[in-house]
Design a protein around this nucleic acid. Structure first.
Lengths: 339, 339
DNA sequence: AAATGTTAGGTTACCGGTAACATGCGTCTA
DNA sequence: TAGACGCATGTTACCGGTAACCTAACATTT
């Protein structure tokens, strides 16, 4: 009977309107809570909405008028990392509160994947996008300019953002930790990290750390950057590498807490005392630090705040409310007991 | 000049077609790689696509014909958990390979949030959805039936799924671990977990574990289920609670590896030897286990496989290819050295 | 009482693609 | 060589909402 069933399941607005005995425009007004209808009319419409199990077709709505998009694209390097999870949770919750849906993509730390993802997401005409990572392909920048939509660059603080930047000052994190280590008298300092590509913000922390050492004219004794995701095992393994190469190390700065914990376990296994034999420090203030036998020296970052701020900045920009272009999210060095 | 600029940035298909000197239908065919055009025509169209920076409007496309949706909704309890991350990464990658976009939502372990999210996502008329968690509200089930779209229930194995189930057999995981502990002679066994609500699949593992104990007519000496996310600190804290309550415990089964590690740290701090004084076991085979001084007794789960299988099953169903309704993803008990 | 404003509600056109069908032209077969 | 066929391409209608505009009824002002 149904000729092709181009329509699936749900009723359409017209059907709801017809059942309620009003025009579909009136039904539309009721559902959008625009004004121009009586309580009585509203009741009639809502009754039919309920009865017919009407699910609005956001596609048609978005199609008709571009300003109505409730879609936000969010790109992160990875969903696996311990730190992006909380940020995404926070972003997701915040946008939900404001009535937006998020479409998350993982670009695996490659600007090319990011570009590919961006093309896909822009095809859905989102109201705005959140990007992370510091490098974009030239094409990415071109496309974004052409579409002229609000953009938040998140995670790394960018003083000349495409549009809005919300992030941590990674350079300062590294610099501060470098100074802290130096102030404690360490002289034979190593760095251990793990990166999949050049654009990673972790390297900015290394730059800051290096700068602190440079300021004291101190050479780093060893630098190990594994081609891998940051994690417990890379930390363990990286430590092994560094200590096999140069036994003369008195402090190690790790890319993040998971790697630092990996290093701690290596030291524990090999009878190396922390911080007497070797001092270690991480970054991120991850949950595991709360159970370590010795409080880890690290930098805590407010992932929840970052996500919330990024989302709120984007919403404000979408709504043409005033917003700062550059937003720093606070980080705090925790002295701990391992340095 | 532009009257309202309802259009943003990009060129439309009509503009591309006009520039190429063909009808928009022909341009559409070229872009969709449908057949019915010469190489020469294709070249003309592609040239203009390139020149004008054309980004197709997926909304309009999806609007016109419902079978074309390339959108997949994926719902998980949380983005923060260490285990869902890899699953999502894997899902995302797999769908990308098949030309679908994913829209991820976190439902915070509440069926009500899941329902809310589902309504939002269905408004976008996705080609299919992946849900996790075992409980859905009655309304959720109603809505899904009305929409008649392919569904994968993921994470927990469900022998009578709404459509397709891809998951781990949590009951067996628990049962196996129970048997394993019993086979090692432990008699005073406790369980420590952390849940935010009733629907959590973790409780199924507990059921299985309990069943193994029941089979040997053994009573659990203590059971601690914190109202929290699973994590290192809840594991630490839960252990403290249990051991303060009953010192007479010789083995603890934890909800997952993070909690087990938290417990390990508690024991380490209090001079409790593992496994001599207390045996511990976790679940998940998380990355941290690779650096522990003593190999953790746990159950490894193939998160990558789960994500890939879930995505592939959904794609097959969408394309009307044959698919099994119930797909078990393997789990493996790792004896380790802590039991 | 006429002019004016206000408000609920209807009408029309359109967003940008794609399915379905129509057309026109060259090629092959009987 | 007529007729049938195949193939590239054009034409039309439509998807489900919403903006913009219009109308009619009633209230308010002068």
């Amino acid at each position: 009977m149904a000729k092709k069933s181009s329509k699936r399941g749900g009723a359409t607005l017209s059907e709801v309107a017809q059942a309620a005995g009003v025009s579909k425009m009136t039904a539309s007004r009721v559902l959008r809570n625009a004004n121009g209808f009586t309580e009585e009319t509203k009741a009639k419409v809502m009754l039919q909405v309920e009865r017919l199990g009407y699910v609005p077709n956001r596609i048609a709505a978005a199609f008709g008028s571009f300003d109505t998009s409730t879609l936000i694209g969010v790109s992160v390097p990875s969903l696996t990392s311990g730190l992006y999870g909380p940020v995404l949770d926070s972003i997701d919750r915040t946008f939900l509160k404001y009535g937006y849906q998020t479409m998350i993509g993982a670009h695996e730390r490659s600007p090319e994947t990011e570009e590919e993802w961006l093309r896909a997401i822009l095809a859905w005409r989102p109201a705005g996008v959140i990007l992370s990572g510091r490098k974009h392909t030239p094409a990415t920048v071109e496309i974004l300019k052409a579409q002229a939509i609000p953009i938040v660059e998140m995670w790394n603080l960018n003083t000349s953002p495409l549009d809005i930047s919300v992030g941590f000052n990674h350079f300062d994190c590294g610099y501060e930790m470098g100074q802290f280590m130096l102030s404690k008298g360490y002289k034979k300092i190593a760095y251990i990290g793990a990166n999949r590509n050049e654009g990673s913000t972790n390297l900015i922390r290394l730059d800051g750390f290096q700068a602190a050492l440079d300021d004291s004219s101190l050479q780093m004794v060893s630098k190990e950057i594994l081609v891998d995701h940051a994690g417990f095992y890379p930390g363990y393994y990286g430590t092994e590498n560094v200590l096999n190469r140069t036994s003369d190390v008195d402090a190690i700065y790790y890319q993040d807490d998971t790697m630092a914990v990996g290093g701690m376990f290596y030291c524990q296994k090999h009878g190396i005392e922390i911080p007497n034999d070797i001092a270690i420090a991480g970054w991120g203030g991850m949950e595991i630090t709360s159970v370590l036998p010795r409080k880890l020296t690290t930098t805590t970052v407010a992932t929840e705040t970052l996500g919330k701020s990024a989302a709120e900045a984007l919403v404000a920009r979408i709504r043409n409310e005033p917003t700062k272009d550059v937003n720093v999210v606070e980080t705090r060095l925790i002295p701990g007991e391992t340095v």
